[in-house]
Simulated scan of single mutants.
Amino acid sequence: MKKIAFITLSLLLAVSFWNCEKDDICAEGTPVTPRVIIEFFDAADPETPKNVTNFRVNELGTTNAVVFNPNLDETNLNRFLSNDNKIRIPLKTFQDLSDFEFILNAGSTAETTVSLVFNYERSNVFISRACGYKTIFNLTNVLPTDFTGTWISSLTIEQPNIINENETHIKIYF
């Protein structure tokens, strides 16, 4: 009798473990909510990429600056400055617009600022149980459209569907 009870208990225990699933882990490299990719070009020669100097992007209405180099020390201002021709900016996932100040020559006497408002539609896409959802964006416009008197000459939306970070979404000419 003890032998039958032991076998029955063992089978019940084995079946209960059989139905358990392994913990899901969101693997590194899994696509997450993409940032908008902005590339800068020379206004005089639109095919030539142009680096921005001491470039900083602040979220309007806050003191939050966009981090371009997360590998630098938290207190290091260079973490928030870009000297490249391509940047990645996160858009808000909880509303249909994000507004930023684009500051050229940040921290110098030649500092100039342009405010840009990104309008878009959002869609949530299920990735997996462990990773949850990511938000993809459909960029409808960027305001202002007239850059007279600013450091930006013009702006074009190259790819309005922001699904990944593999391509340039916006080109800015200055």
Rank of each mutant, 00 (worst) to 15 (best):
L139I: 06
W18R: 13
R122L: 06
S128G: 01
V15Y: 15
L143P: 07
S115H: 03
A44F: 01
D73C: 03
N83P: 02
A44R: 06
N64W: 08
I152H: 08
E158H: 01
V117G: 04
P31R: 10
F137Q: 09
E111G: 06
F118H: 13
C20M: 11
N58G: 04
E167W: 07
E47L: 10
T53V: 14
I152V: 15
L116V: 14
E111Q: 11
A27M: 03
S123G: 05
N138K: 06
F100P: 11
T109V: 13
L12R: 11
S153A: 15
N105W: 04
I163Q: 07
I136R: 07
N138W: 13
S115I: 05
I38M: 04
T63H: 09
T75E: 08
N76F: 05
A65W: 03
S16Q: 11
K3V: 06
T62C: 06
F40V: 04
F80R: 00
A106V: 09
K2T: 13
F118Y: 15
V15C: 10
T30D: 03
N19D: 03
K92H: 11
L77G: 03
D73P: 00
T150F: 08
K50Q: 07
G132A: 04
D146A: 10
P46E: 15
I89G: 04
D73F: 14
